[in-house]
Design a protein around this nucleic acid. Structure first.
Lengths: 338, 338
DNA sequence: GTTGCAATCGTTATCGGTTACGTTTGCAGC
DNA sequence: GCTGCAAACGTAACCGATAACGATTGCAAC
């Protein structure tokens, strides 16, 4: 019915049922004060017209909407993982989820668009938001939880223990006997990128291995950004015996580059990543990496947000989840010991 | 500012700027009829308060919102692929995207919830919707495009050429010499499931191979659903020499089961899937499958929806995209020819 | 026969923003 | 000096729904 016609509103129902919109509203929301026969009539009218209350009108009038928002700017595979966790936490909770993604993907990227969208949503549509996008100080009328915030921000956030994870990887490589370990860093400014690099530096320092700045390449977490960087590292005469990339996407790209150059992994080169995305387990050889279970990040963020919305959050403002070293076939003892 | 306080509204701005809300609205929307000095004052007030117009209020009043909706009930990896395509098509188009996912994941799943959400959104929030969930006859005031609709539906939709793809796979297996080919079907009712099964049946018939109904198992596209089915097929004394699963997720599960049973692939058993999700290329051995480039499905659906919203759609109501057989290591000549 | 109290239902203000329409103001033209 | 007109801005209705409040009704108790 009404396909292409104007959407059916509450007053349409009211008219058909011969009552006022207030009564229809009461029936829809199951409130007290409507006679059984009226309820039946209204229900019938709703059925006949195929009426559904407008989310917009409802949320404009009500303060609570029972809808949580999530803002992102990309749909990488890690985004999907995060979403799984979020959905899991929200399952059966009574909260629905709205994801807002702007189309200005490659456009001006005016850096403040997360803020804009957050404000646009939190005004009325959602009770709170999760930001899966580098966000620093965001202001909003409703609670916000940021996954992987920018460094130094004080908003409620959920992060993996990037420092410990990176340290573990580098110590693993050092333990195997590697001394020249290349590093492909993540997007500058993000807490995750900074901590992973810091873990790399500290682990080397602790082991008494002097750091060669020429072995550090600056990527952006984007897999594509890693290709030229990996190639540059491997083209050096004194090329590293191992490369630690700050994300699995970049590490997998490094694997490809190594193959193109005729280097065997882990024979000629060990490679390690960070994230443990599903693809890493399936790669050949399997990628040694750090598991930060991104679905867990999403899960915890959603759980935190739920509590913040209800106003009964007791935990800390910044959650740091443990990481776990996952050793697979891409790392081994180097051929030539120093 | 205003962190935790009430969100700042247009009348706040109006008050600070000493004008009416109408004027603020005109400034925000860049309409004619405001003096340059007033514009400056209002802009300043907006800046100071950090005002953002509420998406909800705007869309309630306006008919057009320049926001498209997408409704899904799960975030599998194929959902992420579809989303990539959608975002790509929407990039720089002026349309933003809202994804609505309900939390009732494992709950009643009242089968009509897609319809409910579609109606809730299309009433006012969105100019049109993409449904990435089995939907049949949906009614809505705004255009809807369905990806992978139920069989026989007449709504605008985008589908891969499932029949041709399935036929190609089975002909490939037949060409290798297989005669006993098992089939793990998808969720009943979906056009995709039906067409893939029909492709399987027709290809066998065309080759003059009689169909053994005991070799057909009924799955649900869900990877988990395939495990017991694959095991049952492989436990038979006259077990098939090849298994064609209607989705890659189910095919990959079948690979696992085969390994558990000590069967080598493709030595003892050939396995083929459908979808070509990223994991299939990375599996060991690589999975022979049908590429239906799900990002392309999303792309075309978004393109179609854009046109429908603008009212300038010329193409057919149902788009069918070509598929492509991808042969990898999981299929080979059977050991024992009949 | 009144009064009183529930139950039932309609009226209306409101959420935040948009827009048709009306009003004020400034200024040129007669 | 009066008229005409357009620019600039305010007023108020409205989008669809909710909820406080008021109005009506039926029925039991006095």
């Amino acid at each position: 019915m009404a396909k292409g016609g104007a959407p059916v509103t509450m007053s349409d129902v009211a008219q058909l049922a011969g009552v006022s919109t207030a009564t229809v509203s009461r029936v829809v929301n199951g409130r007290y004060g409507v006679s059984a026969s009226t309820v039946t009539h209204v229900r019938l009218a709703i059925e006949r017209l195929g009426y559904e209350p407008s989310l917009v009108a409802t949320s404009l009038r009500r303060s609570r909407t029972n809808v949580l928002g999530l803002v992102t700017h990309t749909f990488q595979s890690y985004t999907a993982e995060v979403l799984k966790g979020v959905m899991d936490a929200l399952s059966q909770s009574g909260f629905d989820l709205i994801i807002y993604a702007n189309s200005d993907l490659y456009g001006t990227y005016s850096d403040g668009w997360e803020q804009r969208h957050l404000a646009r949503l939190s005004g009325t549509l959602t009770d709170g938001c999760i930001a899966v996008t580098p966000s620093g100080e965001v202001r909003s009328g409703t609670p916000i939880v940021v996954i992987d915030p920018v460094k130094g921000s004080t908003v409620p956030s959920v992060t993996a223990d990037n420092f410990a994870g990176a340290t573990a990887v580098v110590e693993h490589l050092l333990g195997l006997g590697h001394r020249r370990i290349g590093f492909i860093a993540g997007r500058a400014g993000l807490e995750a990128a900074w901590s992973r690099e810091e873990g790399y530096r500290r682990a080397l320092a602790k082991a008494g291995v002097s750091l060669d700045p020429r072995l550090i390449a600056r990527g952006s977490f984007n897999p594509e950004s890693a290709a030229p960087l990996a190639r540059a590292l491997l083209d050096r005469v004194d090329r590293p015996t191992a490369i630690f990339a700050a994300s699995d996407g970049m590490a997998l790209k490094t694997l490809e580059v190594a193959k193109d150059l005729g280097l065997s992994v882990p024979g000629d080169l060990s490679v390690a990543g960070f994230d443990n995305i599903p693809e890493s387990a399936l790669a050949e050889p399997g990628l040694t990496t750090v598991d930060q279970s991104m679905d867990r990040l999403g899960y915890e963020a959603a759980r935190m947000l739920k509590s913040l919305v209800r106003g009964d959050w007791e935990g800390p403002g910044q959650i740091v989840l443990p990481t776990r070293l996952v050793v697979r076939g891409s790392t081994a003892v180097p051929k030539t010991s120093p």
